[in-house]
Design a binder for these strands. Structure first.
Lengths: 218, 218
DNA sequence: CGCGCTCTCCACCTCAGGGTTGACTTTGAT
DNA sequence: ATCAAAGTCAACCCTGAGGTGGAGAGCGCG
């Protein structure tokens, strides 16, 4: 895997330079620049095109949250990882809603930072455990099921819908068989029925069908 | 720090016993029992009073989700960590809403499992990075930002993106070849590159990937 | 009761899709 | 001028997916 290119944004010079030195020594990480406030971070991110902006939240002129919003608005390719002092900061959720994909506290070890940067550069997310807990609590409180009312489409039987969902989740026939506790042959039968009913030609078209009918969530 | 007492619930005996042996060797972890389905897990959790129940999602009789709900309803002290094969399972959110505090996939290392168990036993949460990302996406969707910045994903070249879009549109390789005025061989090359870069296994997974990255619209 | 629907399973066949390797050209950056 | 990346194409192999046809079990309904 190639190096992860990181831009560091922090208003305190010692922190900035310390981090730059520390991270540059890590395997798989290259520091491509540093910024001293939010405006500077946005400007440099757009010119340097880093993979990750490692962003402090509290900065003069333009906070890390605002900078994150501006980067998203500008359609920048880079992903934002927040690095701040406290995990119970009021701005945590604001930063996450603005599009931050990572959240670290300043007592993280270099190794933890490295792991987070690589995880986020792969497209996943890496948050401080306390923040993860707060996210879960928010999920439970809101009760907000991110799932929409699903119209069970066409003449699909419940079993066929189950198979279709698993196809949309990228499963192979044999994996579906394992999960539903039936034989491969049965799965193939269901798949053929679903193909016929939905007028799809192959499972790739079935995946698209599933997304269009809310059986899978983007 | 004292030992974290763990109950393991999995319907496959080999997995169950393997995990028990593996985890018992880890520093700070003690396996206090195993269960073969959801009912069994609830029953044993209430008598053994473990710190953590390490729970598979897919189990006969009573799924991991149901078991998690029942433990919460019974006011059990223990916390639930889900350990399952796929991070994009439909039941992930259901499990988290039911109260699961951890989420691991079965290709985690022993060390990762140990870290998660200890983190969760401290009261925090530890989720698979892919699940964290999905949580963030749910947060964004439920919140304000209606438009997701069409991030041109991973390292895909323009040509590869074009091929990916056509795959998501349900085209076969030869149809794509016709539309792009190139040979079938060329299309296959591009497809293989896209598969490698996106870590997808087949075109069905590519379709899902395309929808998740805004390259195709529901 | 017979009828239809659903779910389960088997056997056989074909082929598009995917893996691998290698080669040639163009383009742009150093 | 050299190097790397992107795009184009070809030949090979192999597996999973999809097509066809059939069969038995359980269920609800007129």
């Amino acid at each position: 895997m190639s190096e992860v290119r990181v831009l560091i944004a922090d208003d305190q010079k010692v922190v900035r330079d310390g981090l730059a030195t520390l991270l540059d020594l890590l395997d798989g990480i290259t520091v491509v620049g540093t910024a001293h406030d939010g405006d500077d971070a946005v400007r440099q991110a757009l010119t340097l095109d880093p993979d990750i902006v490692l962003m402090d939240l509290h900065m003069p002129n333009c906070s890390g949250v605002e900078a994150t919003e501006q980067l998203a608005a500008a359609g920048a390719r880079c992903r934002v990882v927040v690095l701040t002092t406290y995990s119970d900061d009021d701005w945590v959720f604001a930063a996450l809603r603005a599009g931050a994909r990572g959240f670290l506290t300043k007592d993280s070890s270099a190794e933890e930072i490295r792991t987070a940067l690589i995880t986020v550069s792969r497209g996943d997310a890496q948050l401080d455990p306390t923040v993860q807990r707060r996210l879960l609590e928010a999920l439970s409180r809101s009760g907000a099921s991110p799932e929409l009312p699903v119209s069970i489409p066409d003449n699909l039987t419940p079993r066929e819908v189950a198979v279709l969902r698993l196809i949309a989740a990228g499963r192979s026939n044999s994996e579906i068989a394992d999960e539903l506790y039936v034989s491969d042959a049965t799965v193939k039968t269901h798949v053929n029925h679903v193909l016929a009913k939905t007028a799809a030609r192959d499972r790739a078209q079935l995946v698209a069908y599933a997304f269009r009918h809310g059986l899978a969530t983007p």
